[in-house]
Design a protein around this nucleic acid. Structure first.
Length: 410
DNA sequence: GCGGATCAC
DNA sequence: TATGGTGATCCGC
C-alpha cells in the first residue's frame, strides 16, 4: 500500500508498513502473497542468468535489430493528435460527499471492513488507500467513516459526465465510470483553443454541471495523457507539448510504475536490471529485447519512446461475462453448489439481456488459503442457467476433495 | 485450448 | 474477526 497515488505524498510510509505487517503476520493471505513474490524472484533469477549467458555475437545481433527497430518507430512517430484524459477526483467518495456535505471534513472511505474501493483526501493523509482492507484502514485512521457503495448514485453522476465529454469528442471512450479519453484535435481546430484551454474549459464544465472536480492530462498519445491527468491531481491539469523533445524530456525521470500496464511484478523485474525510470528504460532497450517476451518487448519499446496509442482502439466485442462471490470459508458441497446455481442464474440472465451465448463455462475457486484455480469446459452454446450451472458443478466435482473454499465464480 | 498470472479500475 | 468483483491479456505448455 506504499504507492505513488495522488494524495499519498506526505504519508508516513514506515507507519503504514508497520501496521500492515502487524495485521497480516501469519495470515493465509500473506502466505499466498509471499509465495507469489518468491515466484517473481525466481523468474528474475532466470532472466538474469539468461542475460549473463548470451554470447557476444548474439548481443551484437540484438543491438543491431534494436537500433533498426527504434529507427522504424521514430519514423512512424505521430504527433498530429491531441488527447485529453479526464479522471474524476476520488469519484465514489466525492459523489457521497455531494449528498452528505458533512463528510467533506472527516476521513471517509467507500467500502467496508473487508475492502475499500476509494477514500477521500482527508483519509488518504493517514495512509488509507483504495484496495486496502477496511480493518487495516481503521488501524491507520481510527476516526475513519465508512460509506457503503452505491452504484446507482455513481451511475447518475457518470451519465452527467458523459454529457459534458460528448461536447468535446462525440466518440469519446470511457475507461470506467469516472474517466474518459477524448480526442480533441477537431475541437481545437474548430474553436482555435489550445490544449490547456480546452482542458480548463472541460474541467470547468464538469464542475458547473456536477459540482464534482476532476483532473485532466493533455498529450499527443492516450498513454501519455493518462499519465498527465495524474500529474496535478486533484483538481488540476498538465499539458505535455506535442513535440518529440517534450515527450522525451517528460519521460526521462518518469518512474516506470506510473505507466498504465506496469504493475508491481513488471516494476520488480525492471528494477532487477536497474531500470526505474522511462529514461533508464530507453537506455536499456537491448536488455529488454534480450530478456522479455514478445508482447512485453513491444509494449516496453513504445513506452520508452513515448509512441503508440495515438489512435482510438476499435471498440472491442465482449469476450467474457462472469460472476463470483466471496463467503466465509466452507467445504459444504450443498452450500457451494447452491452458490454456483445462483451465480449461473445471474450469468444466464445477463447473457440473455445481451443476446449472447456461452461457449465455454469456467469455474473459478479460491481455497481458504487464497490459492486460486480455474477449470473450464466447452459446452454446446447456451444461455440457459441450467446448462451453465451443470457445467460448473461438474467441474467442481472433478476437483474433489477440494477442501474449504472462500470464493466460487462462474 | 487450458490454466496460471498479471493488470486496471 | 476480517484482503472484492469484472474483464482483458499474455505466456508456457
Amino acid at each position: 500500500f506504499i504507492n505513488h497515488k495522488a494524495g499519498m505524498a506526505g504519508v508516513d510510509q514506515e507507519r503504514v508498513k508497520a501496521v500492515v505487517k502487524e495485521l497480516t503476520r501469519g495470515g493465509q493471505h500473506h502466505r499466498e502473497e509471499s509465495r507469489k513474490d518468491a515466484n517473481t524472484e525466481e523468474s528474475i533469477a532466470k532472466m538474469k542468468e539468461m542475460y549473463a549467458s548470451l554470447s557476444a555475437t548474439r548481443i551484437r545481433e540484438i543491438e543491431g535489430s534494436v537500433r533498426c527497430r527504434i529507427g522504424e518507430m521514430e519514423a512512424q512517430r505521430d504527433l498530429s493528435r491531441t488527447w485529453i484524459h479526464v479522471d474524476m477526483d476520488a469519484f465514489f467518495a466525492a459523489c457521497h460527499t455531494l449528498e452528505r456535505p458533512e463528510l467533506a471534513s472527516v476521513p471517509m472511505a467507500v467500502g467496508g471492513m473487508s475492502m475499500i474501493s476509494t477514500a477521500n483526501y482527508v483519509a488518504r493523509k493517514a495512509g488509507v488507500r483504495s484496495a486496502m482492507p477496511g480493518f487495516v484502514a481503521v488501524k491507520l485512521c481510527p476516526a475513519l467513516v465508512f460509506v457503503r457503495q452505491d452504484f446507482e448514485l455513481y451511475q447518475k453522476y457518470a451519465a452527467m459526465l458523459r454529457e459534458v465529454w460528448r461536447v468535446y469528442d462525440k466518440e469519446f471512450d470511457c475507461g470506467s465510470l469516472d474517466e474518459a479519453y477524448l480526442d480533441v484535435t477537431e475541437f481545437m481546430s474548430r474553436t482555435g483553443m489550445d490544449g490547456g484551454e480546452v482542458a480548463a474549459k472541460l474541467r470547468s464544465d464538469v464542475e458547473t454541471k456536477t459540482r464534482l472536480t476532476c483532473s485532466a492530462g493533455v498529450a499527443p498519445t492516450r498513454r501519455l495523457a493518462k499519465i498527465c491527468s495524474d500529474w496535478n491531481k486533484p483538481n488540476g491539469q498538465f499539458v505535455l507539448e506535442r513535440s518529440r523533445e517534450a515527450v522525451i524530456s517528460f519521460l526521462s525521470d518518469l518512474p516506470v510504475r506510473k505507466v498504465g500496464g506496469v504493475g508491481k511484478v513488471l516494476e520488480g523485474k525492471l528494477s532487477a536490471f536497474q531500470i526505474r525510470t522511462c529514461g533508464q528504460l530507453r537506455q536499456s532497450l537491448n536488455v529488454i529485447a534480450a530478456v522479455f517476451t514478445p508482447a512485453t518487448i513491444d509494449f516496453l519499446f513504445s513506452v520508452a519512446l513515448g509512441t503508440g496509442t495515438e489512435q482510438r482502439p476499435p471498440d472491442a466485442q465482449r469476450k467474457g461475462l462472469g460472476h463470483e462471490r466471496t463467503f466465509a470459508p466452507t467445504s459444504d458441497p450443498r452450500f457451494i453448489e447452491a452458490k454456483l446455481h445462483g451465480l449461473a442464474e445471474d450469468v444466464a440472465k445477463e447473457l440473455q439481456k445481451e443476446n449472447l451465448k456461452a461457449q465455454t463455462v469456467t469455474l473459478k475457486i479460491k481455497k481458504s488459503n487464497f490459492e486460486v484455480m480455474q477449470r473450464q469446459l466447452t459446452v454446446p452454446s447456451s444461455n440457459a442457467a441450467k446448462v451453465i450451472a451443470e457445467a460448473a458443478i461438474l467441474l467442481l466435482r472433478k476437483e474433489r476433495p477440494y477442501g474449504a473454499l472462500r470464493l466460487v465464480g462462474v
